[in-house]
């Protein structure tokens, strides 16, 4: 298996080809826009929060396979969760990607998202994978804001 095949595993490619929860929500309660000036990737995350629960989530925008599949898996991973659980997933995901070589990470709450752990070995691509997550975090905590990876 080539290095790039480790990065572009079938689940990643599947989410890239058929992104889940892609598009705009009809009645979002919160929204954020994320931009990576390095590559021009842009993403919008739409949330429907009822009380403390993420009832619905979607995204749209333009990006590479890593950023698109990461966004798609994010929406799958946090839909239905309450805010504090979602933030925990965000923290674990970020720790998984920014860990030092050889360092362990806790995967129990990540589920399918663990498939993206290989991205940590491609430093130039970490921001691709985290763009949607930072945008999601902004939508969750600040509402209607823009976020840049720089």
């Amino acid at each position: 298996m080539n290095d790039f095949q480790e990065l572009y595993q079938e689940i990643v490619m599947d989410h890239n080809r058929r992104p889940r929860n892609f598009g705009e929500l009809e009645n979002p309660t919160s929204f954020a826009n994320g931009f990576n000036p390095l590559c021009g990737d842009e993403i919008n995350v739409y949330l429907e929060l009822v009380d403390d629960q993420i009832v619905d989530i979607s995204f749209n925008g333009d990006g590479c396979a890593i950023s698109k599949s990461s966004a798609s898996m994010l929406t799958d991973g946090v839909k239905g969760k309450n805010v504090s659980d979602a933030i925990q997933i965000f923290e674990s995901f970020r720790q998984m990607l920014t860990r030092k070589p050889g360092e362990d990470f806790s995967s129990e709450i990540l589920g399918d998202l663990e498939i993206l752990s290989g991205v940590s070995q491609f430093p130039a691509r970490i921001k691709c994978a985290t763009l949607a997550w930072h945008t999601f975090h902004t939508a969750l905590t600040e509402k209607d804001k823009s976020v840049s990876t720089e």
């Binding site: 572009y8 590559c39 990006g63 590479c64 396979a65 491609f122 130039a124 691509r125 691709c128």
Partner: peptide, 9 residues
């Protein structure tokens, strides 16, 4: 294929 994916491949 996004250019960044191509670049990595």
């Amino acid at each position: 294929i996004h250019p960044h994916d191509l670049g990595t491949i």
